[in-house]
Design a protein around this nucleic acid. Sequence first.
RNA 1: GCAGGGGUGGCCCAGCUUGGUCAAAGGCGCCAGGUUGAGGUCCUGGUCUCGUAGGAGUUCGUGAGUUCAAAUCUCACCCCCUGCACCA
Length: 968
Amino acid sequence: MEAERARHWQEAWARAGLSTGQRIPGRGKFYALNAYPGTSGFLHVGHLRGYVYPDALHRYHRMLGEQVLFPFGIHASGLPAVTYAQKVKDREEQTVRQLSEEGVPKDEWSRLEDPETAARFLGESYRRVLRSIGVLVDEATYLTTVDEDYRAFIRWQFHALQAAGGLVQGAYFASVCPVCGPVAVDPSETDLSSGGTAEVVRFTTVPYRLDDGRILLTATLRPETVYGVTNLWVAPGEVLVVWHHGEHSYLVSRTAAARLVEQHGGRVGHPVPASELVGRNVAVPLRGGLVPILESALVDEKVGTGVVMSVPAHAPADAAALAELPEATRAPLGAPPVLLEVSPDATLTASERELTGGTGTPAERALRAMGVRGRTDAAALTEATERLYRLEFVRGTMTVADLRGVPVREARDRVVQRLTAEGSCFELQEFSIPVLCRNGHEVVIRRVPDQWFLRYSDPAWKASTRQIVDRLRTSPSEYGRELQGILDWFQDRPCTRRGRWLGTPFPLDPDWVIEPIADSTFYMAYFVVRRFVATGRLTTAQLTDAFFEFVFRGTGPGEPSVDRALQEEVRTEFLYWYPLDYNIGGKEHKRVHFPVFLYTHALLLPPELAPRGIFVNGWITGATGGKLSKKEIGGKRGIQVPTMRDALHRWGPDPLRLYHVVAASPAQDVEWDSDVVDSAAERLRDVERLAQETRGDGDGPPELDAWLLTTMHRTVAAVRSAYDATDLRSAAELTYVTIPSILRRYYARGGAPGRATDRVGRAWVRLLSPITPHLAEEVGAGRVEGLVAAAPFPAADEFPLVEAAEVREAYLDRVEEDLRAVLRPAAERGERPPAEVVFFVAEPWKAEVERWLREGLARGETPTVREVVDRGAAHPEVAAHRTEVAKYVQRVLPLLRSEPPEGPKALDELAALRAADAYLVRRLGFQSVRVLRESEAESMDPRNRRERARPGRPAFYFVRPDEAPAGG
RNA sequence: GCAGGGGUGGCCCAGCUUGGUCAAAGGCGCCAGGUUGAGGUCCUGGUCUCGUAGGAGUUCGUGAGUUCAAAUCUCACCCCCUGCACCA
């Protein structure tokens, strides 16, 4: 459909005010929204998925006669807009290209160098996209999270969270650029120039005391192995420095000293060449005893503290380094102590068992298993290390000192506690790979002592959140289970940050800005208020804490400057739309946004206002699997993904909408495929034609019409239950695939457009509306009063239910299938179709016998021929066919086992076949059809086929074209 | 490792909760026939193997089990994806 036609309908919906849901007391409502988008750039076709689902649901509910609220806003908070503005400023290639494609005049670009302006600008572009594909959002709700009224709301939200005990201050390790301030380290690298995939490594430092009182600080991931230390390692030529902390002086590498100062304070002192220390002894903590300091190139001064505690029995690298030493150095160290054992082979997986074969210390076995050739065989050594660490951590049990029998994972915590009690045990965090800020500075991990957190670990708060999850409807349903697991490990989250990003200043301490996830957990409630602000009935100044307390929680006197009646009205409005029916969002929200959204509702509102549902949709992915990458968008036709603009031009809104619904189940990711959109477009053309053709005023054959209407009854019921279960894909399949095939069958069976198809057509038009609203209006014009989008959704009861008609069609289906099965081999050999087919309909006694047999099988018995014959003696009709009964039982009994237990429904087969003769003739190419009772057909059945007849499965005999027509 | 998801016919994707009507929906691709100026659209049929009468055999990651009956239930194993934390 051309864009102009689409716009015509979009304007008609707008004029009719369809998108503005009104509170109508007593009338049902549906309130769902899409987790609002961030502002990192223009929307592309993949984003549509997240809007098509909610729009279809809202349209469905609107047609059910419910009042709907579908708000829309944009999430300007955080860094995306800042980054985007920076890209504009840098005139970054991709960004500039998009701006020209979107037709933004060059003299406006400089305006977009301001983050807030950029965010609003992008927001407007999103609104245009939504309108252009027919998504009906309530325009009055539109907001950005940097609007003043929204900020007032967020201030209240944090005061309320504070009052409810949801906030706490504590220490936190943050990634910061020493120059630019806090940065996010994540693979999207919004803030970074490299290192986004870095992981944070948490070392524990273990102190080793020299006889002069100075302390060598080693860093380890496995503090429990302190019991197996044989020596310390320093790098050849390394220069350590003194780190002064408290009353102690520690020796560490220069990089480590800098990190320790960031994370634990203190100051860096004078350098100390490591060579001075080599050969001296240090005291081992906890275990006691002295071990020597040795040199090895295995030490990397950039990692940890630049001093390594050597545990050769359990660390493959240490074992390899040790093996390089001259015998004279090595011998005095003695045999490396083994300090833990892993559970017996039987409980290990194959890959774990691989590590444990052979003899020697665990480290030696791992080296052998991985085929490590020496200390410099880095890849194999890393593999051996990681696998052995994992194995021992998961399966190991300590065998030393008073930790005997303690699982390693537990022993580690205990050792840390003991070391901490003795002092000089620090947590040292660093990145696994270097991380560089956009401006080229190295990002470090800094301890922030007074970070604000939301107390998501609080047991009571967590418990009330769980209660919401217990009652929550989720799509997919597994997500409900997953959520419980997510809550298990959900910990406190920092909710503020210092530094440059967009957001609301933290009301309890304006030095901080609220973090973007924390300011988007409760906005569903604010949208209701926003409508009053948008229409000028409330001003931002009136949005005080007192006002919100009253509106959202019904407590307190309210805001004195606001008219009491108005305040009551806002409160009533809030209670009308709440609770939220669905929060709909992409799968990226599963672990953060959705949980905190539930948390906040659990704390601020009573359970009866808790959210009712969460709907998770998958992504549209590019050929590379991940989210659509930039280079995949806007490329040439075909393989790559078209821009929003191109897509609309090429297909129009409805094929895109249908594509997003049918391409996969909602939760599935789906790889973008233009061909599938093409075929969706084809299908819609087909649907349009078929729907137009349904007009008519004649009557078809009554049985056939009955079947058509009955089938529609079933289909409409199925469509409604699919929508009710938010199963849009099934709804679409029924609407766009099943209904066309029903109509085709109707025509094939001899029906013609008439009153019956007209009824189907008028309902179908309305069924089309939620997913392809423009098409529905095109086809519905003149057939549905007013706009289709505002018409009532069809009800199953609009169509009569005639079971006999269904039974008959199912019977004919089965007969046709049998005929085809038999005719196929002959047709494949190129033979002409038979001249005539003669049907033999089973005698009633067969039905009786089958019924007896089924009864027996249902009881778990296997009826014998004798039993049936005996029982038949008392039944005149069966008795009359005594000889045939035995044979019939033998033939049919095995078949019955694999058939459905109910058996075929009663039906006048003779009449059904006779009424369908013209159809069968046309369909299968016979010249004539004859239908007879089994008992009256002897002369017509030279091959004796009539015995085969069963209830519901007539026997038949084909008369070849060259055979003389049988007599009678 | 833990948690969640998944492995279905040439491909994509349903079905699995509530075992039977499942040789398994739908789409794509492919084959044949009809329509057509046309290898395009549309319509009809076919598309695991065998079979000159509606039948039989072998299939839903692998192996075992429960059952009269398993793609569907149970157990074990193999493989793949995602997340594991502050990132929107």
